[in-house]
Design a binder for these strands. Structure first.
Lengths: 367, 367
DNA sequence: ATGAAAGCGCTAACAT
DNA sequence: ATGTTAGCGCTTTCAT
């Protein structure tokens, strides 16, 4: 049972030209729709190309572009450093694989929460007049970014896209704009996974606290929605107490305090905590100070150094990660395929894998 | 905070030639150590190349080779179909990404348990005389395979390597031979993960059955060793009963029967099952027939259709997967880097990710 | 021992 | 509207 890819040579432009009885130049014009060609001839060429299942040779194309590579720009937030550094690593890995392939890459880290700065950076990319006091800034061929999904940002993105520059969003999506695709996690499923873990660890009855950031943000509620659905499926005996941390250390502490206070009043027992969006460190400190380690099952998100320590110490049972490297690597690869092979991403949404990490991942196997 | 890769152009052979005041041909001869060049000139050229941090242009190299690509051969077992089909998909994806990059790929599925067939296939690859009744069989430049770690196989591999053909093993390693590297799972850690899952689901006391294939094979015991270590760490109250299935359906059924019989005799309660190496279907059937679903926590390996059904039905709690696609994709990429960029793999062992899959993965999120 | 040149497939500027 | 050609960087053959 043998299987060989490309048993014989791939067709070239030269071959198409020979069969269609035109010159390579004409074939090129047809395939790139650069006009100035007789419609009938064009049709014939297209026919031959599709008959031969022509696909351009990637190495040749890359070589041709190597003197003036297409620039892909990537904007990442300066916040959440530990996480986005990992994204940048994946991005760099893809860039390395694509070096010499006709692409060049720039990464910019900026305060994406400051809409002004962000929009200015985005705008610059669609209105780069060649002649202007150019500090050597080449025009951008593709844009990859993480940005909040607000009206002004959407507008700025649409302006870039209108200028013919494709955009891929990562980690958090920007809806209702013409982006090519989104690379990020399925937050609802992430919540579902957390619920399954907690439910199966707990089984019996009890109360579970789900800490989220801010319920007005869709992104923050998604995990909780998934979590609640998961508890229905696998932990019917549990009741869920949803609390908002507002993204601060103090907010996290005080919402946990409030949850435990209320549970005491209601003679309910808190047996689990799900940190959907919040400051994990705060939760860890809280558990240690209150001497709750071991009596409360804890599931968090992300994979930071402090989480890994908490896993090792048995404070946290599992943490659900979203493979930041994949979120950097994939968009650049997709952008390349789009820019050079004219293949739009197959999916609108590339789900980054949901990885369950437990203490097993932070322990040595041999001793 | 801007960061641009390769702000200015990369040096070319032409540039080295100009600076070292020789011709491109000479530079090429030096860099490829093809002899026939004055030692002093050679030294000068090497100096210039390293000064400029020269690295060949991948696109140009690929283009040059596109007419006579290097053939990479991949041998996969015909057994374990569902799994190795996935491996083949990863392999094909890498092959697609590398199409036109000077590489061509052939995949062969054969009965790797039949040592004769396997060794014959391996041997063919090192002794392919050009002049012979060649049915078009080109000589192989690299070999990727999964094979049992036995003496005759090792010898055959060593013969291929001696002929100058690099070898990468996947899924199961072949030790003590000159293979470039191994791509596969850390079986001990896989067992550790299983133990953590079961321990944290169970907590209390009870007996856990660990079903393995055959204790005489190192590969089969590794998971069990990791599992036992994990139970020590997270499930001190559990006791482990290790059983051999000998890789058959009947063997699996009968070892489970024996385990339950013995438990009854000893008035112990079996609360969990770990299917380390065995026929998952047998275990599922056993649980259903004995009406044990829900009372016994079950962790398996791999991600087959029947396992997914069992997850959905709540028969199996978690299954531990080893990302077969990654095991196909990675070796070919590494082989390419080795053959074309002269970069040997950084690691001797590329660990395929250990993915924990639960019911959350087989459930719809929106409804 | 070294240099010169052809050619891989594609693009784009130039020529007709 | 169509054809011709130079050139991207590398390898390899041929000529010196």
């Amino acid at each position: 049972m043998k299987n060989r890819t490309r048993a014989h040579r791939k067709p070239t432009i030269q071959e198409i030209a020979r069969i269609a009885e035109v010159s390579r130049g004409t074939v090129d014009r047809v395939l790139h729709e650069r006009g100035d060609v007789n419609p009938q001839v064009a049709e014939r060429v297209r026919q031959v190309a599709s008959d031969l299942a022509y696909a351009p040779n990637r190495a040749a194309k890359a070589l041709k572009y190597s003197s003036k590579p297409k620039l892909v720009s990537c904007i990442l937030p300066i916040s959440n450093r530990e996480y986005f550094d990992q994204v940048a690593i994946g991005f760099a890995r893809a860039a390395r694989e694509l070096s010499d392939m006709g692409i060049s890459v720039e990464t910019e880290r900026l305060d994406c929460d400051d809409e002004g700065t962000l929009i200015e950076a985005i705008r610059r990319r669609c209105s780069m007049e060649e002649g202007l006091a150019g500090g050597g800034d080449a025009t951008v061929a593709g844009l990859i970014l993480t940005a909040p999904d607000t009206e002004p940002v959407r507008d700025a993105i649409d302006c870039v896209i209108a200028a013919g520059v494709p955009v891929i969003t990562l980690n958090s999506d920007i809806t209702e704009c013409g982006r090519l695709c989104f690379v990020g996690q399925d937050l609802k499923r992430s919540g579902l996974v957390a619920a399954e873990l907690l439910s199966k660890m707990l089984r019996g009855a009890g109360r579970v606290v789900a800490v989220t950031g801010n319920l007005v943000y869709q992104a923050h509620t998604d995990r909780v929605v998934g979590f609640q659905r998961g508890v229905e499926l696998w932990g019917r005996l549990l009741d869920v107490d949803v609390r908002e941390s507002f993204g601060t250390y103090e907010g996290t502490i005080s919402c946990l305090e409030a949850a435990f206070r209320q549970a005491e009043e209601e003679h309910a027992e808190i047996v689990g905590i799900y940190m959907a969006t919040g400051i994990n460190e705060a939760c860890i400190d809280f558990l240690v100070e209150r001497n709750l380690v071991g009596t409360v099952r804890v599931v968090t998100n992300d994979n930071t150094r402090s989480i890994r320590r908490a896993l090792e110490a048995g404070i946290v049972d599992y943490t659900i990660c979203q493979d930041p490297e994949h979120q950097g690597y994939t968009p650049l690869k997709l952008m390349y395929e789009y820019l050079f092979h004219n293949t739009a991403p197959l999916l609108e949404w590339y789900q980054s894998p949901i990885k369950i990490v437990g203490a097993s991942d932070v322990v040595d196997t041999d001793d």
